[in-house]
Amino acid sequence: MAKDPYSVLGVSRTADADEIQRAYRKLARKYHPDVNRDPDAADRFKEIGEAYSTLSDAETKARYDRFGADFRQYASSGAGPAGGTPRWGSGGPRPGPRPGRGGYGNVDVNMGGDVDWEDLLGGWFRQQGAGPAQGADHEAELRLTLEEAIRGGRRTVRLAQPGGETRNYDVDVPPGVLDGQRIRLAGEGAAGRDGGPPGDLFLTVQIEPGAKYRLKGRDIHFELPVTPSEAALGAKIKVNAPAGPVRITVPEGSSSGRRLRLRGQGMPDPKGLPGNLYAEIRIVVPRRLNKEERELYEKLAAVSDFNPREGL
Rank of each mutant, 00 (worst) to 15 (best):
Y6D: 02
S7E: 08
S12E: 11
A15Y: 12
D16V: 01
A17K: 00
D18C: 00
I20T: 06
A23L: 02
Y24W: 13
Y24G: 10
R25G: 05
R25A: 04
K30W: 02
D34T: 14
P39V: 07
A42W: 05
L55T: 02
S56Y: 02
S56D: 13
A58S: 08
E59M: 06
D65N: 13
R66N: 08
Q73G: 01
G78M: 09
A79C: 03
A79Y: 07
A79Q: 06
G89E: 10
G89H: 10
S90K: 00
G92Y: 00
G100D: 05
R101D: 01
Y104F: 06
V107A: 04
V107W: 11
V107L: 02
V107Q: 02
N110P: 09
D116Y: 05
W124Q: 13
G129C: 02
G129K: 08
P132V: 03
G135C: 13
E139D: 14
E141P: 01
E147R: 09
E148H: 10
I150S: 01
G152A: 08
G153Q: 11
G153E: 14
G153W: 14
V157S: 02
P162W: 13
G164S: 15
N168D: 15
N168H: 00
V171I: 06
G176S: 07
D179P: 05
D179T: 11
D179N: 14
G180T: 00
A186I: 10
A186V: 15
P198V: 01
T204G: 12
P209D: 03
P209H: 09
G210R: 12
G210N: 09
A211R: 14
L215N: 10
G217R: 07
R218Y: 05
D219W: 08
I220G: 02
H221C: 00
H221Q: 00
V226A: 09
V226K: 13
I237F: 14
A241C: 13
G244D: 13
V246G: 11
P251N: 04
S254F: 11
R259M: 08
L260K: 14
L260H: 09
L260V: 13
Q265F: 11
M267E: 02
M267Y: 06
P270L: 13
K271F: 05
P274V: 02
G275K: 15
N276Q: 04
E280Y: 03
I283F: 09
P286G: 14
R287Q: 05
N290Y: 10
E298T: 07
A302C: 00
F306I: 14
E310C: 08
